[in-house]
Design a protein around this nucleic acid. Sequence first.
DNA 1: GAGCACTGC
Length: 802
Amino acid sequence: MSKQKQSEGQTSVNNPADATLKSGKKRKRAAPKLEAGPLKGFAGKVTKFNEDDSIVAAPAEIHKEPVIDIAVTGYHSHEAEERSKRSQDQTSAKSVPKLRHRKTRPADTNAGVIKQPDYPRANKSREAVPPHLLKKRDALLPIRKSLPIWPQADTIKSSLKKNNILVLTGETGSGKSTQVPQFLASEPWCTKCIAITQPRRVAAISLARRVAEEMGTFMGGQSPAAKVGYSVRFDNATGPGTKIKFLTEGMLLQEMLRDPVMSQYSAIVVDEVHERSVNVDLILGFLKNLVEQMENGGSSKRKDPLKVVVMSATADVESLVKFFEDSRAPSSSALNAQIERRISTCFVEGRQYPVKTTYLPEPTQDWVESALKIIFQLHYKEPLPGDVLVFLTGQDAIEGLEKLVNDYAEGMDKDLLALPLFAALPQHAQQRIFQSTPFRTRKVILATNIAETSVTVPGVRYVIDCGKSKIKQFRNRLGLESLLVKPISRSAAIQRQGRAGREAAGQCYRLYTEEGFKTMDERTTPEILRCDLSQALLTMKARGVHDVLNFPFLDRPPREALEKALLQLLHLQALSDDGSISDVGLKIAKFPLTPTLGRVLVEAAKPERDCLLDVIDIISALSVENVFLNLVTEERKEEAEEARREIYRREGDHLTLLVTVQRYAEEQTDRKVWCEKHFVSHRAMQNVMNIRKQLQQQCTQLKLLSPDDDQSSSAPSEARSQAILQSVLRGFISNTARLMPDGSYKTLIGNQIVAIHPSSVLFGRKVEAIVFNEFVFTGKAWARGVSAVQLDWVSEVVESVM
DNA sequence: GAGCACTGC
């Protein structure tokens, strides 16, 4: 395949002619091996693949779990325009016309990122849907008809006529994400919009694009007639005609805060529920309450019913049905007890090739070595094509194995290429997994669990699974999070294994024994059971749930965790003494920030502090990771220290970040060059500017900021530096420590010893007290994002809280 | 003188 073809990535499956061509080849290889899958609970149940099936086996899924946002190369002119608009937002300041740049204040230099729907081509497009859209739609119809979910359309429609809730289980490749919204859109009860939630931005965007094509309509803001749109942070592509709207879970939650009865929607489809993000758990709880309220007569704001479709990949139908069936606590009124809510269920088969699974005979500690052996065995035994995907725990193991594979391959033939894949890898390096390799070269992709759900690696036939992953765990007692290597669950192991059977029959090597597999947990522990709950609880309070302890949780967190979070919110004054949400709390809940950072923002807006714009800059920088590039060699590190000297501030990391953001925003000629010169991540800074702009807008809406407030661009005076750090302290009172006689630091709350992380500008310095952004435990307790503060400031805040 | 799985508003 030519390089150009490869770079088109997703597009090739969008083009039916191309798809036929490609799968024509694929069919030859795959057809003889098709048979029922060897494992129970595994989606290898398809026994017959006719010609059409094999043509369409992939597209819907490829769209559903798209690769990293590769630009889709053009086949529609407006798509191309839309794309170039988007890519402009993301490219360096260099590509933004200078004229526009000079005219704007620093605060606005990233103008255009938060897209307001406008219809530049409205006059042209209002007339009629262009023929090429209709042609495309017609070409896609036979593909849609051959999806496993297609025959279920009538069942799905009629069950939603009868009941308000449908639990739909559809395995990988069933086509549920693209088809279900279309089935619902033409139903008589569906007079308003349909929302479909997704855990990830890329999924929301590419699904919307696909459904727009299938329906032969424009996308989002392209035309008022567009029926399909999406809404993700910084990018809203919806219009007045939007009937089907894909959005991230976080976006729907924000909408729920503004409009608790979801008055613009006739139906809400919650997809990928099995991933069990905190947000999905909140959404399901809110929806259960809302449906209950509607069935009990509705509210003044809403009378028509709300239909809810819950879609999940694994077979956890029972727990979902039970969750929605249960009416309120038995003690509630007799009326409630009489209501017997009926929930419809539906199961759709997936489409997946069989995968042969092999276990180790004996357990091993050294996955890297076992993986290496298997990689080379496979390479010599199995014919090409067929790439290998290895699941490892983190960057260290990946880089270690990468070196080993490339070293060994060097000594033999040069036809095995190891490629790392993890989130912290720069975008261009991640893209290498999609590029074509030299003739007769086999790729070995070494990945973290980014490849489990977020990125679909093409061409994989062999999976090697170490059976572990790193998991962040919140420890209530200490109030700190730590990252631990833990065994994965059986469902995660099955998910990893499935990655070998997406394009043809495959093989999976598990670097553990069959006994080991059996002792794994069945499911991954839902996030809500292992994270800090303060943000989730504040969202609930803001949404009008007063009794959070009795919120309908799909999995109820331990009482201790809930109480800990409530206490934290009380300390932040987000809650009043009686537990109801305060004005401060309502403000904090509206920001896309943790309650602690939100509290800092609100504090900075007080007249006696008056440093809101500066604090927004700092918070924006704290919201992304690694503004400063991590350098490997000693030489480069020294170079960076020297180059950054002019932006480093003795007061600590918060003010250093402030100066960095200010300088970057002031830079009028070439921000990318400025970043390179100071060893700052340009990608991170672009993100910082997006967040900064959003926070400034939100502060203006909340009247914390007036539109004519001047953007300060000078480094802050000493008085303002104090105000900034005192505002930070107000949110981070539990993240403070004081210097002990022996030179160590001990936290004021909890008496925990912490050390200043070497990445801090305060590393190695001794000051009377510190406030820090983050507390990480990796062999030793580290404070990261540290600033020096006066001990009496800390005491002052502690006294006001206690 | 250390090291960081992955999302998202």
